[in-house]
Design a protein around this nucleic acid. Sequence first.
DNA 1: CTGAAAGCGCTAACAT
DNA 2: ATGTTAGCGCTTTCAG
Lengths: 341, 341
Amino acid sequence: MRGRNPFDGKPQLTLRDVAEEAGVSEMTVSRVLRNRADVSASTRKKVFEAARKLGYVPNKIAGALASNRVNLVGVVIPSLSNMVFPDVLAGIGEILDGTELQPVVGTSKYDETHEEGVIYEMLSWRPSGLIVAGLEHSAASRAMMRASGIPVIEIMDTDGDPVAAAVGISHEAAGRETAREIVRRGYRKIGYLGASNFADHRAQKRLAGFEAGLAEAGITLADRILYDGQSGFGTGRRITETLMTRSPDLDFLYYNTDMNAAGGLLYCLDKGLDIPGRIGMAGFNAFELLDGLPMRIATMDSRRRDIGRAAAEIVAEGELSTARIALTPRFIEGDTVRAPA
Amino acid sequence: MRGRNPFDGKPQLTLRDVAEEAGVSEMTVSRVLRNRADVSASTRKKVFEAARKLGYVPNKIAGALASNRVNLVGVVIPSLSNMVFPDVLAGIGEILDGTELQPVVGTSKYDETHEEGVIYEMLSWRPSGLIVAGLEHSAASRAMMRASGIPVIEIMDTDGDPVAAAVGISHEAAGRETAREIVRRGYRKIGYLGASNFADHRAQKRLAGFEAGLAEAGITLADRILYDGQSGFGTGRRITETLMTRSPDLDFLYYNTDMNAAGGLLYCLDKGLDIPGRIGMAGFNAFELLDGLPMRIATMDSRRRDIGRAAAEIVAEGELSTARIALTPRFIEGDTVRAPA
DNA sequence: CTGAAAGCGCTAACAT
DNA sequence: ATGTTAGCGCTTTCAG
């Protein structure tokens, strides 16, 4: 008895078993199963049949140890419930599907210490690449990534100092751009609605950029509200109601994410407020999902699918890279902001 | 040169390096790093320091091969963009976080052949367990799972014949139950709105159960519409408009998922239809996200988080299991159905 | 085109 | 409490 893995007991089928069944050497079986060209057609056939008959599944652990090659790509993201990240994963998948590489996903829960554990765990499998969301990591995480010897790509964000390669957008610029659009359209009493999650660095950067953009026009944020917990329509409604009650003279609401903006939109429509006349609103992310709402929310495209694709392309390239790819977030006007004066 | 893994070149740090640095044997280092109790405190300290100083990250591949133990759990789901599955993964995570086990996620894209490849790939890493969505798989997939020798749990669905263990709800019963509630509340001209995706077996089963439930009251579906593509508000609106235009006398709309029902709700509200008087509607899944809509959609809780938890518990147990766990989907009345007569 | 030998980095089992 | 030996299942390398 060697471990508590339930594989114990059922002896594992090995290359040797297939080799015996097919009447060839282990080496030949190995060649066939790796689709190497230098095997005769008749031998190939024998081997495939033997493998199928026995139900042989290769042991990648042994293969990886012997070859020093692992076709896995680690992907570390904060969470799967935030719809941003499934989209990033979809982009990564689109590229990796054309290769031998397979993504392996881990979640950091917006916690650097937890993230450190996940990165350690992933690197211990010697993947062919590592894609990590964000630029803020523990010192130990950064050290591990630097020392890993594999392509490391930090994604989502370009406002900071990556360990190696980075693909993302500037959230600072996204916030600033949104502010400029809003000011240009005549809004002046502006409120911000976002998460109190201090560890959502990208939202913080958007807010900082937003305030800087307002400052260019001599405007300061009139009010702000922070919530704990998940974004969603209910949350969006609740925080909007609280904020509007407290500061009824606001003429614009800037949300950390479209999900909350959608809740706010529904709230304002319920109240019969004139949008975008009496009050305007904007979010962030450009979630397609929301397309059927009564109005299209003004937002910026976070380019998350493109980010996934670009990061995966760097990994697929197979070279250590320090590329810095800054995509441009695009402002989408929608129906919840007035036309510029 | 042994492979194209970028690790080549940078020689990998091994136990031996740490052992030399700390002045002890490899075996002692191995014991310390696995937190085994039978090492003196002073030795532990020396070893940890040496490992930290060198930046050593263990090679799990070698460890797994030697110990025949792999702390990974394969999870195969159709897609991450359907919000159902992130919730299942969250449930799995809640349980596995209390163990050494780590989930590894793969997606089948609602395609049995693709799924077969993903399962093969996962099994080749000799995980400690395999959690697979659905009961419908290729013959080869079923054979592999049966032969794997590890705990295999099929999730989401209990209407069918699992390979080993299964945790889910009866979608047939969910559809039937919904039909009964609707009939009980006096609706008679009933339309169905769902995906044309033939491979979404669970939606098919709900529809079959729904029709059976209507049949109990002598009712047949008055009309139905199928769409290609993603569910969402826009899709929900569009199919609702098409269906209502074609069959304006419908008094109830049954949707495959709450996301589409939400779009339909917004459409009907736009049109000024009296809900739930003139027309009622129901969906499926009970997405929390939608809580802030103008009305709460009638739905059934798909118990997806509980399903993830229960499946992970079986894997964590570590025993081969043929448990069949059928959870009960709960009808949630919301605001879009009339009270029973 | 096929086979034999050596060894990947680690841990189980057995010493001491 | 620590060390020694053997070997996990595969692939690389070298021979034919």
